[in-house]
């Protein structure tokens, strides 16, 4: 079927199958920052924003985004790079495979929570798994980023 949707501020027409996942549809469209890390909706790698809310694109049927605003990390490149600079200074990107989904969640948190506590930060990001870094460096980066922002 064809749906009208907006990706990173641009209105487009997407040709999607009935059972096509948004994550697959976005990758097929060239948004290669979208990654799949699990089959059970629990790793956070595929996180995008739908109408500004962080959402798992692997658990969203593509046709559900008809007339919605989708944002991928490509659409917030400048903000993403600002945070990535802080993250990378801590060495806390490591393999980088989970970083796009993680960064989309961090940026959403920044919009949503004012002066979050450490516990609130950890809670907000619980659904973003990382096997490389042990999370501590990411926490240091987030605190620096929020403190300096």
């Amino acid at each position: 079927m064809q749906i009208e949707t907006t990706i990173n501020g641009k209105k487009i027409t997407l040709e999607v199958a009935n059972d096509e996942l948004l994550s697959d549809a976005l990758r097929a469209k060239g948004y290669l920052s979208i990654r799949q890390g699990c089959d059970t909706s629990c790793c956070g790698l595929c996180t995008v924003w739908i109408d500004g809310k962080p959402t798992l694109s692997c658990s969203t049927l593509a046709f559900r985004v008809r007339d919605k605003q989708i944002t991928t990390i490509e659409g917030v490149a400048q903000q993403a790079e600002e945070f990535a600079q802080v993250l990378v200074a801590e060495g806390a990107e490591q393999c980088g495979f989970c970083s796009p989904g993680f960064i989309m969640t961090v940026l959403a948190m920044k919009h949503e929570l004012k002066n979050p506590t450490e516990q609130e930060i950890i809670h907000y990001l619980t659904g973003n798994l990382c096997r490389c870094t042990g999370y501590m460096g990411q926490l240091r980066a987030i605190k620096k980023y929020l403190g300096g922002a």
Binding site: S33, V88, G91, P100
Partner: peptide, 22 residues
């Protein structure tokens, strides 16, 4: 020196540099 990784910014921001992307 605690320098950042040479590939850090590019991989952190989702650039297509992994196997499936190629």
């Amino acid at each position: 020196k605690g320098l950042p990784k040479l590939d850090g910014i590019r991989i952190a921001t989702g650039q297509p540099v992994y196997t499936e992307d190629l």
